[in-house]
Simulated scan of single mutants.
Amino acid sequence: MRRLFYKGILADTIEIGGADAHHLMHVMRAEPGQKVIVVDDENQVARMEMTAFTSDTVTMKLVERLDADTESPIRLVLAVCLLKADKMDFVVQKAVELGVNCIVPVASHNCVVRYDSKKAAQRQQRWQKIADEAAKQCGRTALVEVRPIEPLQKFLCHAWYEDDMDSEFLFCYENEQNVSVRECLQRTTSERYLLLIGPEGGFTLEEAEAVIKAGGQSVTLGPRILRAETAAIAGLSIVQFEKGDLGS
């Protein structure tokens, strides 16, 4: 059943506009009586029935509220250095399916792709659209923010893990041989995890030192060399399995 995210709070009757209304009317060819799942800004979920249409809105009435929270018990942020377009698309989609709460595209020294400000904004919009569609497809009860592209040094200056929430900052580093992701996770009880993945060319020594200075714990994903997109999916899966709800 089609899932929509409603900018507001669920009520007995609501009105959907914008791209979702256009999709319902002109792509799905929806008719009165058809039902969809709607998630509101407070993560409430309900089955709603379409009752009326205008040129740019769809009116819906509440059929039943659902107890369908699908969010992970942990907060999970993925910071991933820029990959070639199709690979970045893939990582964004799969990260949403794996339960991340936020995705931060990062520009580092060895990134293959470079964007000017206009192209960077277009890419962010594209990735946000992919993330929104993935959230609908996999039954999330919250949308995932894709932040603007940031240089690594600027990213490290942000207080991603310095507020009141207990956090763990992990970065997958090809030169780390002693500390595994699983070992690191098993010795922490953090509520939020920040996972940093490098580009195809890896981190420079200076970048790795900067990440460690900013509080990052270097970890290894194993003895084999993984492609960057593989490392992102593997790292997220391990965190969600050990601390979240993957396989629960």
Rank of each mutant, 00 (worst) to 15 (best):
C81I: 06
E49C: 01
G139N: 02
R123N: 11
V63S: 10
D116T: 09
A134F: 11
Q137E: 02
K61R: 15
L152E: 08
Q44L: 10
H109P: 03
A107F: 03
L83E: 12
K87F: 09
A68V: 05
W127Y: 14
V112K: 15
R47P: 00
E64S: 07
G33N: 10
T141E: 00
L152F: 12
T59V: 09
A21C: 05
I16D: 02
W127A: 00
A131L: 10
Q124L: 11
G33M: 13
Q34V: 02
N101E: 04
K94L: 05
D89S: 12
D67K: 13
A107S: 11
Q122G: 07
T59S: 06
N43C: 10
H109E: 15
R147P: 07
Q124A: 05
L152W: 12
P105F: 10
D67I: 06
K35V: 04
V96N: 01
Q125A: 14
D40V: 08
D89C: 12
T59H: 13
K129E: 02
R140C: 02
H109G: 06
E133G: 09
L143M: 14
V27G: 00
A46D: 03
E133I: 07
H26L: 14
S55D: 12
K61Q: 13
L98W: 01
P148V: 06
A131R: 07
V39H: 03
L98G: 00
I14Y: 05
A95Y: 05
V58H: 01
I16T: 00
H26C: 07
V77R: 14
K87H: 12
Q44K: 15
A11R: 09
L143P: 04
E15D: 01
I130Q: 08
P151M: 13
